[in-house]
Amino acid sequence: MPELNVMQEAQSAPTPDAGFEPAIVAFVCNWCTYTAADLAGTARMVQSPNVRLIRMMCTGMVDPKYIIKALLDGADAVLISGCHPGDCHYINGNYKARRRVKLLAEILPRFGIDKRRLKLTWVGASEGNEFAATVNRFAAEIKDLGPIDTRRLRVR
């Protein structure tokens, strides 16, 4: 399909838009990163409003189709964040997430989606500052990357 190549080109040469406010969906685990987000909030650490959280019990339950759905539905990027390796509340769910994200990140470019739009991080329950920094860093990265092309293709 020639459209795919067009999309890939559009991705490789983004045109940063000064007024662009990305929509970023974050799937975060209840035990570590969601708790860290609460902590960052309690400590009033200012964060970019572009990142919106969906609480999951574990990153291991994030089906790749959720990520694909988010990207197709107009999310400019997806963040997945869970407990540090070895700290998973459910023993090893985060390792499963890591495998899935790695594979998905390889497939995404074939569909014209820059793999930088998918990010996996580990933020522990006590790392409120790390959470705020991750959110701000990622939002800035996606602002630089520009809007996702699937937005244009959306049927309204």
Binding site: V25, I54, M56, M57, C58, G60, M61, V62, D63, K65, Y66, K69, A70, D73, A75, H89, Y90, I91, N92, G93, K96, A97, R100
Partner: peptide
């Protein structure tokens, strides 16, 4: 209820109650 099975199930048969596909999709 960690959802390791639900995250992987190729047929979508495994679902975590209160965190199922329909609910997450709708939230998104």
């Amino acid at each position: 209820g960690c959802g390791s099975c639900a995250g992987h199930c190729p047929s979508g048969a495994a679902q975590v109650r209160h965190f199922n596909e329909k609910q997450i999709f709708a939230e998104m």
